[in-house]
Design a protein around this nucleic acid. Structure first.
Lengths: 218, 218
DNA sequence: TAGAATAGCGTACAAGTGTACACTGAAATA
DNA sequence: TATTTCAGTGTACACTTGTACGCTATTCTA
């Protein structure tokens, strides 16, 4: 039951996945890859592709899963560094920037398919980003003792800012990267500070905000 | 010199532009359109396309310009509403959400081509977004008397958050739109509050931050 | 060990792509 | 008015695409 066959199949499946990943670049998106190109790059006849995936879409969704894994591995890496002490924001941003430097194409895949033409892809990417956000949310809630809603809003905003910075980083000269990182760090501090201020007043928030938001929410 | 001919040419050029815009949808991106499809939709023979654009790329860049115009028109609209009084953040977010509801495909074009496979497209979109950001930056600097750097960072972060919310709005049930808007408003308030706090200390910022950032910037 | 299952191949085809080229008729120009 | 210009047409060609179908060789299973 070991499966010489199954093993070989798994191996060429990986070849297909790697072939696809390998063809991604700043000027080549997944949706612009053809089944034939991927098969060729993997050293397979076009029709053999179907032995592993019914579709390019199915391959693509697999890649998104793969990317999600890489993303979570990134979080673990960041947490390890944070435990050794230092500014959380700073370490997170630098970890993320390093991630992008060595996983540019995977990150591009996420960015592109998030606004792509397949609803399934968009959903898959958003799911991965949601995991990412929720983990950060948990952390914020615990570390900063924030109100759950405030923590979520902060996490969501922070992830948005960091992803956007990541997107900029992809088109950035290497020499400007550090400057970009510093700007991002400051922006995250704005958000953290703002969230903290609002979080402090979470009990009497209604009093604090009623003057400004009166009548806006039912 | 009036130009019956030139007039007609301009007209069918518009037909091409409108044909392209008309084919965009959640499941159809500009890069997935073919020259032939666009020409057909415009009621032209494929080869006539070349009388107006040398490339699909050239058409695409025209569309991005078009989208930039729409975006600036949006800002004007928002400013008008703001002058009539009300929360700046609230009005801006709602104006933006309305924009997306009636210009979804134009917004999708910007989102997609910002991370697309053509460097020229990415540059064009980023240019439009930069204009948008700088206008907001000016406003913040003037209205809130913020330090230039702080104002820029706030404007940049705010635009990022709003665009991201816009992207979410495109895949959102209509009933959840208001909730999304409210969340976005709160996030913008976090940023505004944080920027304000940091901005206050702009004169003695070096003292305030030197402990944390010592040695990071030359 | 005989038979079934299956990963991978090659051929073939219909559909769609960008675009080169020669042509036409109407508008612009001289 | 005679000539030139040029927006738009139709044909044609070389390519690429996804995938249906039948075959082979190897592994699995009974």
């Amino acid at each position: 039951m070991s499966g010489v066959r199954a093993l070989q199949k798994e191996k060429t499946r990986r070849q297909l996945i790697d072939a696809a990943l390998g063809q991604l670049s700043s000027e080549r998106s997944f949706s612009s890859l053809s089944l034939r190109e991927v098969a060729k790059e993997a050293g397979l006849a076009p029709t053999s592709f179907y032995r592993h995936f019914s579709d390019m879409d199915e391959l693509g969704l697999t890649l998104v899963d793969e990317a999600g894994l890489t993303l979570r591995q990134l979080m673990r890496q960041a947490r390890q560094r944070i435990e050794k002490g230092g500014s959380v924001i700073q370490i997170s941003v630098h970890t993320f920037m390093e991630f992008i430097e060595s996983n540019g194409n995977i990150f591009r895949l996420l960015l592109r398919e998030r606004s792509g033409t397949s609803a399934a892809f968009r959903a898959a990417v958003n799911r991965e980003i949601r995991y990412f956000t929720l983990e950060l949310c948990d952390y914020l809630q615990q570390a900063n003792k924030l109100d759950a809603e405030v923590a979520y809003l902060q996490a969501n905003a922070a992830v948005t800012i960091v992803f956007s910075a990541g997107s900029d980083a992809l088109d950035c000269d290497k020499k400007d990267l550090e400057e970009l990182a510093q700007r991002t760090i400051k922006q995250l501090r704005f958000i953290a500070r703002g969230a903290f201020e609002f979080g402090l007043r979470s009990e009497n928030r209604h009093d604090q905000l009623s003057r400004k938001t009166k009548g806006e929410t039912k």
